[in-house]
Design a protein around this nucleic acid. Structure first.
Lengths: 169, 169
DNA sequence: GTCAGAATCACCCATTCGGATGACGCGGGA
DNA sequence: TCCCGCGTCATCCGAATGGGTGATTCTGAC
């Protein structure tokens, strides 16, 4: 939904919203004096309002729930440098269980993990951005941080190491 | 992961949403000839639409981001004694068995499979070329053919599909 | 109330990748 | 013998990716 994207971000959001509101008001004024006598004015009127307010609602909903995730990570200082690679060796049929300890150890955030999973799924940065409702630049930033934390130079390498570490299925 | 899955159903959600909107529009059009024409209640009309669609939008927004809250990192205070047996329980996973049938079905040659494995290991084309003692251009040619046979557009996608198809571990 | 971390977005630049071709040599079958 | 599949190498070009830097907003913690 491109609507959400455009409404997502900086103070430009308010500006855009104001402009949209103004345009809407103006359009309604025009409609009132021009097409109100016509039969289809209510449709147009309602359509515009519906569009704008549904966008507003979506944006609001996203905004309200964006940071509802209360991630509780307690750093557990356990010296598992030898055992971890063996430990995560291929669950083989069993359901995937994420290695949260290593995740915290590497300092990978939930958002970065999302990008990592999308990368593993073979998506391009642009596609990831579209799915997560962020710009491609943002995806690149997250990806860069993931690469750094995984000491990877390419995305295939990052995916490979993430799988080995049990961060992704 | 669940996040990606939830966005796969976006289209469905949008469809439902659109249908709902259409139904609402139709209902309002009916109502237009019954009640609302009695008074100049354009404001009430618009207000109702705004309210309904805002609610709808918020609901949609919540639905879209609901799975995000499931990203809850648990604390993993696991001592050594518990983990060590796991190493024994999972002896390096089951041995990989290549799906030769699918390999032949796709028409992937041995050399192309080599390139595929190297790609999965996170190597760049240049590194693959050095490892296999061929030029980078050759690697690119093989890679392009692999992409074509796997209907992949990116190497991460090719790796993903190859793993799914059982062509590589 | 400040401060750090997380997420977002932008811009620049260099490298890599992918697509589309064309070409060459080699070996096994028809 | 001649053709075809395979492997090899090349060039051009546009798209994608990665690195680096800076900025803003928001939230939670101190």
């Amino acid at each position: 939904m491109a609507v959400v994207e455009s409404f997502d971000g900086v103070k430009k959001t308010v500006l855009i919203y104001g402009i949209l509101g103004g345009v809407l008001i103006a359009a309604l004024k025009l409609a009132e004096y021009r097409f109100l006598v016509l039969e289809h004015s209510l449709e147009i009127y309602g359509g515009i309002i519906a569009l704008v307010f549904s966008s507003l609602g979506i944006w609001l909903g996203l905004k309200l729930t964006r940071t509802r995730e209360t991630v509780v990570v307690r750093e557990v200082p356990v010296p598992f440098e030898v055992r971890v690679p063996v430990e995560v060796a291929v669950p083989a049929g069993a359901r995937f269980e994420r290695n949260e300890a290593r995740l915290a150890q590497l300092g990978i955030t939930p958002r970065e993990l999302e990008i990592l999973e999308a990368m593993a799924a073979g998506l391009s940065n642009r596609e990831i951005g579209e799915r997560l409702f962020v710009s491609e630049n943002t995806v690149k930033t997250h990806a860069a941080r993931v690469f750094d934390k995984l000491s990877a130079r390419r995305r295939t390498q990052a995916v490979q190491r993430a799988k080995e570490a049990g961060l992704i299925p």
